[in-house]
């Protein structure tokens, strides 16, 4: 995640209680989804940005997660995510994002 975006997320998380915050990801593969999930939970693993060593522990979900999908408008979802549902390795992505959501140990 680039530095400016890390700064923004960091500021949002600092400014108020984080218990009503959720991060939703849209990456097409497990590697990049995992990287962003890790950044907003355990801190920036590349040690490049403001979130390096800052474990925000934000709840993070991928947009492909059925738990998230079922709350969204079906038609819009099909239009914006339908194609990626067909192409992405959904299980792999969800596994990695859950791994970090659960603490990343």
């Amino acid at each position: 995640m680039d530095l400016e975006d890390q700064e923004n997320v960091s500021r949002l998380a600092e400014g108020s209680a984080t218990d009503d915050m959720v991060v939703i990801l849209g990456q097409p593969d497990a590697g990049s989804a995992g990287l962003f999930a890790e950044t907003v939970t355990r801190g920036d693993p590349t040690w490049a940005g403001p979130l390096a060593g800052v474990p925000l522990g934000l709840p993070v979900y991928h947009i492909l997660d059925p738990e998230i999908k079922e709350q969204m408008d079906t038609e819009l979802y099909q239009e914006h995510v339908g194609l990626m549902e067909l192409t992405a390795d959904v299980d792999d992505i969800l596994r990695w994002v859950k791994h970090y959501r659960d603490g990343g140990e």
Binding site: L12, D20, V22, V23, I24, F36, L58
Partner: peptide, 8 residues
Amino acid sequence: KRVVAVGE
């Protein structure tokens, strides 16, 4: 909820 959307 307050959502942070990180797309690609």
